[in-house]
Structures are given as C-alpha cells and as structure tokens.
C-alpha cells in the first residue's frame, strides 16, 4: 500500500511538471490550455489521494458499518474540476477571437504582428 501511496504522490509531481512545462514552453495557445488542464488535473490527484483511507469505501452510507474515505477533498475537487472547465472554456473563447483578429494562434506570430 505504501508503494502505491508514494506512487500517487510522485505521479502528481510528474504530471504537474509536464503540464506546467507545456504551459510555459509551448507557443501554441490551444496547447497551452491543454497543458493548463493537465496541470490542474495533477492537483486534483493530490487532493483525492490525501482523502483516501485504507480499506475505505466511497462516502456513501450503506447498511453495514464501513470505513469511509474523507468526503471533504472530494467536494473540493468537484468544485475545482468545474472551475477548471470554466477556465478552459473561457480560454478557448479568447483563443477563437485571437484567431479571428490575428489569423494565428501561435504566440510568436502574434508578437510579430503586433510589432508592426
């Protein structure tokens, strides 16, 4: 169990890194947004991992006495997922408008076109 636990946390760190890298280094706006969603998804994993309890079940009460995992991180992440998709949707809206005005969604092109 411990191995798996460590694995969850390490994967969180790796995904965070991959997503963050894409946001910073990729000049394509859509790619940046995808990177951002990976970046956020990594954080979701962190929260959900910490809410898990050994031999627990989902916090939905059943007849038998059970050990339930912590519902609070799950609630927080439900909210965070929705916040994430909202940001993505708005970001995509902006990207579409940028494409209409500039004819490109590459950061490099846009910087060049603004310099003129």
């Amino acid at each position: 169990m411990n191995v798996l636990g460590l694995f969850y946390y390490w994967v969180f760190a790796v995904l965070l890194m991959v997503g963050f890298y894409a946001v910073i280094a990729k000049p394509n706006y859509v790619k940046k947004l995808i990177g951002l969603s990976i970046f956020q998804a990594a954080v979701f994993l962190l929260y959900i991992t910490m809410g898990k309890i050994e031999d627990g079940t989902a916090p939905i009460f059943q007849a038998a006495e059970n050990v339930y995992s912590n519902p609070l991180p799950q609630v927080l992440i439900l909210t965070a997922i929705v916040v994430g998709i909202s940001t993505t949707a708005l970001g995509l809206g902006i990207v579409v408008r940028i494409r209409e005005e500039y004819g490109s969604i590459e950061e490099t092109d846009i910087k060049e076109r603004d310099r003129k």
Partner: peptide, 23 residues
Amino acid sequence: LFLGALALTGELEKSPTKHRLLG
C-alpha cells in the same frame, strides 16, 4: 469544447517549442 474551438482555429501546432531551458 476543444474540438469546437479547433474547428475554428486550425489543427496543427506550427512553431517549435521555445524557451526549453527556461521552461
């Protein structure tokens, strides 16, 4: 949503990755 947006913006990433080191 992504697909909807891509339909309007184009589907290929053109420029190479920048700021590799900095990133």
